[in-house]
Design a protein around this nucleic acid. Sequence first.
DNA 1: ATAAAAAGTTCAGTTTCCTAACAATTAAGT
DNA 2: ACTTAATTGTTAGGAAACTGAACTTTTTAT
Lengths: 372, 372
Amino acid sequence: MTSNTGNLSKALPKSVRHHNRAILLRLLYPDVSMTRADLARASGLTRVAISDIVAELLGEHLLMEVGYSKSTGPGKRGRLLRINPDGRSILALDLSTPYVFRGAVLNLTGQVVAREEIPLTADGKVPLDLVGELTDSLMQRATHPVMGIGVSSPGIVSAEGVVDDATNLGWVQTDLRGYLHEKTGLEVTVNNDANNEVLAERQFGSGQSDLLLVHLGDGVGAGLLVSGELVTGCNRAAGEIGHVVVDPTGPQCRCGKRGCLESLISVPKLTAAMDRDPDNLASILRRAGELLGRVLTMPAGLMDIPRVAVLGDSRVVNRIFLSAMEKTMNDALATDFRRPLVVDRSALGEDAALLGACSTVVADLIEPDGTV
Amino acid sequence: MTSNTGNLSKALPKSVRHHNRAILLRLLYPDVSMTRADLARASGLTRVAISDIVAELLGEHLLMEVGYSKSTGPGKRGRLLRINPDGRSILALDLSTPYVFRGAVLNLTGQVVAREEIPLTADGKVPLDLVGELTDSLMQRATHPVMGIGVSSPGIVSAEGVVDDATNLGWVQTDLRGYLHEKTGLEVTVNNDANNEVLAERQFGSGQSDLLLVHLGDGVGAGLLVSGELVTGCNRAAGEIGHVVVDPTGPQCRCGKRGCLESLISVPKLTAAMDRDPDNLASILRRAGELLGRVLTMPAGLMDIPRVAVLGDSRVVNRIFLSAMEKTMNDALATDFRRPLVVDRSALGEDAALLGACSTVVADLIEPDGTV
DNA sequence: ATAAAAAGTTCAGTTTCCTAACAATTAAGT
DNA sequence: ACTTAATTGTTAGGAAACTGAACTTTTTAT
């Protein structure tokens, strides 16, 4: 109900090290090279402390030395350090794509090392055993020590990694994190698919830390980043906008209400409309873009968000759709104190959910939050 | 532009102490009594560490001992500790109320110790000198060491405390924090009025940490709390919803656009409409509540917010208005995974902005964020 | 050649926490 | 009444993580 304010757990001297390690790794992530002295200047820590932390990270193979810095004047040249991309392997699972259950092994910088897919039966159900099988299989293909498993799941995912998704997977209160942790002994993070996608967009895409990502698929979901933090909401239902009514006079939705967002602009609905009326593709897309723009205007204004990224089939999410959306929103938001909002396609393709899952695992290293 | 993710500054052993002090103070705030052993259990720190920190806080007069715990079994009785409300004084200034410039001296728990008001000239302008005068005057009336100054200002306030509000105060890029810090040497926090009001609602009202507060006044502003954190937005313009267009066919607004939220449901607009048509008060209010509910539905759904609090003149913000708003929103949001949203009046009265300003100063003590 | 600058290390010192052991107090059982 | 057990808060010693000052090595500029 009431979510916690900031960090309520105690701090120990050990937490200081954890925090400072994260600061260094974040400065170097994903492929920046710096010397110890550079890191000292950038972090505010002394060279002594940096040397100590770096020694530790080198020992854990999270960093590597890659030659010497160019000299820019008098003085000894420093040794360049960077993240060792293959210091760890990460397993990522994506349960959110229709008709297929996907998984991958990635390295620390989000590069896919190996990939596996299992086609699903028509009903789309994924038995828990199947998750275990794919995990085992990926584990075999990991090239380096596995630091954790990230999962993108549809539905509502509790903070404890319990999935509630009666709609698609047929899972009701399934303790996915518990199952995988029990099985592997590894750290496991489970998140809603759209939530993970927006994390991926920040980490491996545009880098923005205030961002709304809308995923147009069979349903409509969103992920929201505010000051770099994922918004999960008091019921862990943030981003679940598919069944918000946007037109009470609209068509009947399968959820029982009328005019849900999803009943108006899901990809199947729009492609069906386009197939029925192939002469008016542009106006169908324009109207859909205007509708989505209209309903997202107030959130964007209220949170002062600079960009909305849309992810989905390019037959729908194209220039016409995005321009209509962008114009609608900027017409309604324009004021002298606000920069124009950008609406565009997500920089990531269909790996977004896998990359997001990976980023939640890597976050343990580069997010200076944890315990401190 | 891109706001920062979490905490990017280094941690020192000293930060650990700061963090743990904040944890203890938060456990006791505002009027909880606990023994050292209780605090150890609640925080996870050892009794040794607690004794050390408590000794420090007693020495600074932030805590006081208030007798012995009741005994519940064998064992020595502990000494009860609590916040010393008068350990510090806080100055709060409110520049957001029309026609009057208000200030107050408060204690650590947000109780008003002294109050001062200066009526404003018809144009509502507040010269910087006047701010200085009221500050001097309040400083005289502080009964205990002043720990800081909090200010609620209309308009956009930068993270550095620079106010940009051409509309009301006539201030353009006024370095209010710099001015007051220069003058007094104290810590100064300056925030937008609605933003401070939502902080007050959390701290001194309902205690919720996911909350949207809408202030209906001459204009319409909002403050938004997500996971206990104030949302400020990429341009520090979060909550500035007054000039978001909600009906492109609506009346001309003074900002140049048509159908801004503020042009439809500001208190002056609604009271004028009610005065013109006194037989239809209820339907005017109902329609206004429905409109506000409709535009806030998507933000509430997207962020999964459990409550919307409305602050404003009770002629407008009454049962009819709030019920219409609540029904509109819940009709559109209802799903099986979401608890019904609550829409009600803010628990705080016209001191909300002062209390919020106070809470930003006290936050230095009880928020375990700071440097760590 | 010499001086100045920069990188990285060594050493001593501070802060903050922890564990273990202890003294003081309280209640309950015999 | 006396013993036992539990609980509170303190004292003493030790570990982790930082800092500042001084040192060595390397590099450029005069």
